[in-house]
Simulated assay, not measured.
Amino acid sequence: MNHRLPFSLPVSLTVGRALPARLFVPLFVLLPALLLALALPQASANERAAVIASRVTLEPWSDPLEALGTLRADESVTLSATVTETVAELNFRDGEVVEAGQLLIRLEDAEQQAQLRAAEALRDERRSAVTRLSQLQERNMAPRADVEDSQARLRQVQAEIQGLEARLTNYRLRAPFDGVVGFRNISVGSLVTPGTELVTLDKTDVMKLDFRVPEVFLAILEPGLPLTARSAAFPDERFSGEVASIGSRIDPVSRSVTVRAELANPELRLRPGMLMEVVVERRPRDAVVVPESVLIPSGERHFVMVIDEANDNRLERRRVTIGERRTGQAEILEGLAAGELVVSHGLQRTHEGESVRLLGIADDATSIGEILEATREEGNA
């Protein structure tokens, strides 16, 4: 049985003349429309044309600006030794999450501890001497000068104790902030010297993302612009953030400016050094959006078939002005309002002023395949 296509292609051949390139329609564009047309129920002369519609929606929209960026930790430090001594204690494991102030490494400090105890004993002795002389001086049994000398010696030993306590901090390395430690490349008993790198610490619950954009976009960049980023390590996930700051200089070679964004990383999956694909959402706004399949191009103009639900599903051919596009969707600047119903599939058999048979409304919850399957089941019932 021969199937006749429910539409004809508006392409004519003129002998002796080459066809304009814009009249050649790629097969991969026509094939989905042909298959869908064959799948839709065919209308007889007196039947209404069967169509699938889409609802005009109001959605968040922006003009994307794409770039590549590199992640950095919000805070990052390499803890190193400031004295020459052996490692006495290690209190962390590779990749462990630590808290600010937590003791990570203790170097051997027995000699310094002994000096501190001696200084504390001397302080106690001189404090007692000050007390005795003060009591004697109150009874006029000791000169005031002796009291003042003893108080000065007490202050001296107290200063020495403070110096010893400050030097002891060089033998104890604590985490300066909450973060994740790196690999442990030293062992207890290892001799370290000033400048020896002992362990890295990164604060990664918030990540800094540095990327470059051409200077022509400098006027539209500002702190607070929303963005999304994607990593090859997590291809199905988008990480949200916003522009934090914009570089103060333009690179004279690449004519680009460095932009720094911040990304939340509560699960600590992102790591410093990762390459990220960045999409900055310029001019964020609420836009009237339709699927691209509802558009009927005619030269430089675009039309849609609007279904008047209050008037027996009668069709109205309406001109629209489109704005930006993204995959499968188009922004409508003029001609449609959110909530209206437009024909998305079956346009080839429709004419303005006719009433149509609505098979279903395609949206995020209902696909075209589900609508066609439900229609076939109803026909077989």
Rank of each mutant, 00 (worst) to 15 (best):
H3R: 13
L5G: 02
P10A: 15
V11K: 02
L13E: 13
V15F: 11
A21K: 05
L23P: 02
A39D: 11
A45N: 11
E47Q: 14
R48V: 03
I52F: 08
S54C: 09
D63R: 05
R72M: 08
D74N: 06
E75D: 07
S80V: 03
T86R: 10
D94C: 05
E99H: 06
Q102F: 11
Q112N: 12
L116T: 14
A118S: 12
R123W: 12
D124T: 09
R126T: 13
R126M: 11
S128N: 08
L133W: 01
E138D: 15
E138V: 06
L154W: 13
E160T: 15
E160A: 11
I161S: 10
R172G: 06
L173H: 03
P176W: 14
V181S: 09
R184P: 02
S187V: 03
V188T: 10
S190P: 06
L191F: 13
P194I: 07
E197P: 15
L201R: 04
D202N: 11
K203C: 03
D205R: 08
D210V: 03
D210P: 03
D210G: 03
P214C: 05
V216A: 09
F217G: 01
A219P: 08
P223N: 09
G224H: 10
I246P: 12
G247D: 10
V253S: 11
L263R: 05
L270Y: 10
R271N: 15
E277W: 09
V278R: 05
R282N: 08
R285H: 14
D286I: 00
P291G: 03
E292R: 11
G299K: 08
H302E: 10
F303E: 07
M305H: 11
I307F: 05
A310W: 01
D312W: 09
T321F: 08
G328L: 05
Q329D: 13
E331R: 07
G335F: 08
L336V: 05
L336S: 07
A337I: 07
V343N: 04
L358P: 00
L359P: 00
G360I: 01
A362T: 05
S367Y: 02
G369M: 06
I371P: 01
T375D: 15
R376H: 09
E377G: 00
G379T: 02
N380M: 12
